[in-house]
Design a protein around this nucleic acid. Sequence first.
DNA 1: ATTCTCTGCTCATACGTATGAGCAGCGACT
DNA 2: AGTCGCTGCTCATACGTATGAGCAGAGAAT
Lengths: 360, 360
Amino acid sequence: MTTTPRRARAPRQSDVARLAGVSQSAVSRVIGGDTDAARIPEATVRRIQDAIKELGYVPNPTARKLRTGRNRLLGVHTFEAVFPRAREDFYFEFLLGIEERAEEIDHDLVLFTSTGGSDGRRRVYRDGVNRLNVADGAVLLGVAADRAELARLEADGYPFVHIGRREVPGTRITCVVPDYESAAAAIVDRLADLGHERIGYLRAGIEEESYADRRRGYESAVARRGLRDVSPASPGLEEGRLDAAWLDAVATGEVTAVVADAEWLAHPLADGLADRGLTVPRDVSVAVLEGVAPDAPVRWDCLQIPRREVGRLAIDTLVGMLDEPGEPVADVLVECVVVEGETVAAPPAGPSGDTRGSTV
Amino acid sequence: MTTTPRRARAPRQSDVARLAGVSQSAVSRVIGGDTDAARIPEATVRRIQDAIKELGYVPNPTARKLRTGRNRLLGVHTFEAVFPRAREDFYFEFLLGIEERAEEIDHDLVLFTSTGGSDGRRRVYRDGVNRLNVADGAVLLGVAADRAELARLEADGYPFVHIGRREVPGTRITCVVPDYESAAAAIVDRLADLGHERIGYLRAGIEEESYADRRRGYESAVARRGLRDVSPASPGLEEGRLDAAWLDAVATGEVTAVVADAEWLAHPLADGLADRGLTVPRDVSVAVLEGVAPDAPVRWDCLQIPRREVGRLAIDTLVGMLDEPGEPVADVLVECVVVEGETVAAPPAGPSGDTRGSTV
DNA sequence: ATTCTCTGCTCATACGTATGAGCAGCGACT
DNA sequence: AGTCGCTGCTCATACGTATGAGCAGAGAAT
């Protein structure tokens, strides 16, 4: 049993200094490595280093943080549990990227798991205390992100980045988001290239910031390519069914291709079309503006959200903010890959169809 | 745009104090809630609280940590990436429990992801700095845990708990481990109850601390029940095949049941037995001393490692150490459930078999 | 009138580090 | 003899909080 006796108190720089016969600041400088600026000769440096070894001195990160304001600690705040029940969990892939990148640039991650409230909801402020403050900055993610908390965080000047677009009036928060706008436009372009002229957009009923991006991309591409937009009047689902009148219109050939906001919209769409005797993609093409699970029953034409890359870029953006405080940071767009599936084809050469608009 | 102008400097207690016309310590006491001990009347408390609200004051966790030594931050150090590629990952379930429990007791988690070294290996000490120090204590896990680092950590008096047994000579490190010993004994008991009298133990070649626990449980139960142990001379696999001589002995009825250290040993075992015309469990029973993937091709009789619970207990144990520093903490054993599968049955009533030893 | 007790605070310090400013000593140069 | 410049450090302070000790004043008791 040669165990070192448990030290009552960890050695500090002043202990090292005493042993080496120098001042605490000399020790600090040697550790900080600015021996040139402080003009400490090699002999003294070695003496100090020996003392450090002998005492087993280890810098105190808390004191460092207090002094310098930096920690190499990056926060991750999710509004739900971080370790997901299912690997397919929405967050999961983001976290993979976050951890990967943090490791590469030698930072540690703080997972803010404590709820603080009795309601069990995760919040940033717990009885007025910004818990994130331990970390140099934080990456926030989660659909339920409380907008008031984000505004307060921003007002407090806390450096953070949000994964996914989140807009709060009167506040400029930095987001890292998939480039839905370009991706939506690319999908419309592809449909146009194939000869489609009349297309529709099926949106989710839920109001969400990222919807605006997709919609914008869709609309600009529709205008640019001179297409006709025939979207349903009522957005999304109604009692599990889509707008019947609009589906009937699709059946009469009013629309030859549909862009759906999400996969869960595409399935009822396909059902509704099947009810009316239409087959995808022979009669109607369908593309999905969202990543699709690899084991989905239908191989949708869709776009793939680069979640891993988004996570990585969130870290880089955050660290950029820390390095250049005060500088306003623009949102970061991450390109989406358009995946070709089995649900998009050329439009049928029906009575109402001609290929005047085709660029192929 | 009514955004609060970005404060150059976050307000501190002294700012609050000035506004409320009191001293900094009064503010600290009000925040700390020990207004009784400090005899601060309600009116003053309210004045201070108003000032806190007006300035949007938020305590600085770093300063707090420096002063009190506590953070409500618990470290998690894994020697590989935390967010696993596969959900079946060994660590995964532990982390689930860790996060769950940390959330319940209102602590945050620090994920030590940084490598510090150029070799890309995750280490506790990076150029002599104990990175874990930011957190109040840490849970370590990972088969590759460097023993020297553990010893140093212990010598430094850093509070930590290791998931899985890890022994370092001359050092007493606290582990939270599945109770393999009892589980192995329970499995042997079950075999004995079924009437087996001659059994063997198939161990993994890899030297590992937890092996000792299992072996101990096995041996004590074998002795207690008066069984005969006929284990192979050579442990584990050799060139992908098990000890042939021993397998032949099993084929002649020398052994009617085998306890295997791990699932990957059980498969070649079953193959070897099949080669000799034996069927599991009709001719030979096989039990596995390790959890088995739910989608395994064979429904082994095995024991289930309560990983989630181990994670939770690791947190509790760690917090206990923080609350009572100095107290030695015994290892924590977590009971394993023995799962009945389809690979254990009563021994065949062969020429060499009698039921004298059966207690059923 | 003096002492005692209680209230309502304040003072001072410690936690461990980083860093700008400065100082003593020495050799060199004018 | 004076001063310039360099070396090799040290001094002092700030970061923001928590806390033991103590102090001034008011009222009560003797």
